[in-house]
Design a binder for these strands. Structure first.
Length: 450
DNA sequence: TCATCTCGCACGTTTGAACCGG
DNA sequence: ACCGGTTCAAACGTGCGAGATG
């Protein structure tokens, strides 16, 4: 026996799902050129995963937007697709560290993003139930832009500030254990702690790309990937309202900083008693300055002065403790579950994963009429069914030139269950008027719903 | 001038190889 | 030769703050 993570440890990166949108009417034309660099001209625009989930009707391929996402209520949300017979209808997911997330969301969760990629904290940690123990599944995470606005920290609160920027290249993070059996996923909570966010649109490491000062909603997908009993196909997507966050390059809300320091073990050094605490840092700086002075002095008159006295460990007075800023209004998140929501508060859409990112065939918000992507002919190199150890071959050959390839290296798994062809293609995302409508959904520039 | 971003720093945690004894 | 426990160093993950950028 072997552990799935040993087989597919290379799948821990993130993968582009769609090409960057062409400039459309809803976007500032001035920003259009920057996306040329992220266009994948050879990307298969055919329905994603069609061969992966052949039994699903096209009508079931739409992944509805997260209900209540303030992308513009004027657009009627399409009805949720009927549950797929291929994915157990009882699939449920709960957020393991929901309490921690709620702590953060009560003050407005901020996530640091860097060029090199920064982990999320709190991390996404979920429990899944209701899977077929013997069927194979992939677990993915992506982030949805929320709010259609850029935000700024003003007067100790977040305010909408202009239109959101063009969406960055879309990527998903595939859990390193994927694909694994339902039993594996249900055995213990699934952590996405290795997921990283970056603001580098040319990121070569496969991290999820986001814009700074924007709001996002993480989304977890469970995708059936076949198995010994032939189960496979279908997708269940889950979102947790408390996991919405704002991206920043430096923390704005000191309460968030404090919460992170208190909760994140990696930031332990910044706690009050840590060597990196404010007190210690200031003491260090003072010692350093003093030492420099001493060196200078020694250099000037070595023999005239005694050894440098660096006994400057006396406690530096703490900065005047400012009272914590008032809390943001309680989150008035509109991201509430709709009918069919599981008791955990997550929404589940059991559907064809081809619709990860929008309505197939729907007008693209990025393209002018007549710019619809067309489905290319099926790849002649596609194998079906695949050899047991050839999961990589399930990816479209057109992905060879994409940045996912570096993350697919590694030894071949010694054995694996046969999977149906694994094909992604791109569909327009997000649907028209959802993301980039004016920030009027925040009357009076209310703080974002966090 | 201002808001935002980048980078280097110091410190703590994690991870895995090396070592040791049973 | 194998196994389990310990040690240690390198890699990695943090927030901070100064300086750069637009």
């Amino acid at each position: 026996m072997y552990h799935p993570s040993e087989m597919f440890s290379q799948y821990g990166g993130s993968y582009p799902l769609r090409p960057p949108p062409p400039p459309g009417a809803g976007y500032p034309q001035s920003q259009a050129p920057q996306y040329e660099a992220f266009r994948y001209p050879d990307i298969d625009a055919a329905p994603k995963l069609d061969s992966f989930f052949p039994s699903l009707e096209p009508s079931g391929r739409l992944l509805p937007p997260a209900p209540g996402l303030p992308y513009g209520s004027s657009q009627a949300l399409p009805p949720g697709p009927p549950p797929s017979a291929r994915l157990p209808s009882g699939v449920r997911m709960s957020l393991e560290n929901g309490e921690l997330w709620k702590k953060f969301s009560s003050v407005g969760t901020e996530m640091i993003i860097t060029k090199a990629g920064r982990r999320m904290f709190p991390q996404l940690k979920v429990s899944v139930t209701g899977l077929d123990p013997e069927a194979k599944y992939l677990l993915l995470v992506d982030v949805l832009p929320v709010g259609g606005s850029r935000y700024k920290w003003h007067s100790k609160r977040w305010e909408a500030s202009g239109k959101a920027e063009l969406p960055p290249p879309d990527r998903v993070y595939i859990h390193p254990d994927s694909p694994a059996s339902g039993a594996h996923w249900m055995r213990q909570p699934v952590s996405f702690h290795r997921l990283k966010l970056t603001n580098n649109t040319l990121d070569p490491h496969g991290h999820l790309i986001v814009h700074s000062m924007h709001r996002y909603q993480p989304r977890v997908h469970v995708i059936g990937a076949g198995g010994r009993r032939g189960a496979g196909g279908g997708c269940a997507s889950f979102t947790f309202p408390e996991t919405q966050f704002l991206t920043v390059t430096a923390y704005q809300n000191p309460q968030i900083t404090q919460l992170k320091i208190e909760s994140n073990p990696f930031a332990k050094g910044f706690r009050e008693n840590g060597m990196n605490s404010k007190r210690e840092r200031e003491a260090r700086i003072k010692r350093k300055i003093k030492a420099n002075e001493c060196e200078t002095d020694v250099g000037e008159s070595e023999s005239k002065k005694g050894p440098c006295d660096s006994t400057l460990t006396e406690e530096m007075p703490l900065d005047h403790q400012q009272p914590p800023p008032p809390l943001l209004p309680h989150p008035s998140c509109s991201f509430y579950p709709t009918a069919g929501t599981n008791p955990s508060g997550a929404e589940a859409y059991v559907q064809h994963p081809a619709a990860f990112h929008g309505l197939q065939g729907a007008p693209s918000p990025y393209s002018s009429p007549g710019q619809e992507m067309t489905a290319p002919p099926p790849s002649p190199t596609a194998k079906s069914p695949l050899e047991p150890s050839d999961f990589r071959a399930m990816l479209p050959t057109s992905w060879n030139s994409l940045d996912i390839i570096p993350f697919l290296g590694g030894p071949e798994p010694p054995d694996a269950s046969p999977f149906p062809p694994f094909k992604f293609s791109f569909t327009p995302y997000p649907p028209t008027a959802r993301v980039y409508g004016p920030p009027t959904s925040y009357p009076g520039s209310q703080p974002p719903m966090l």
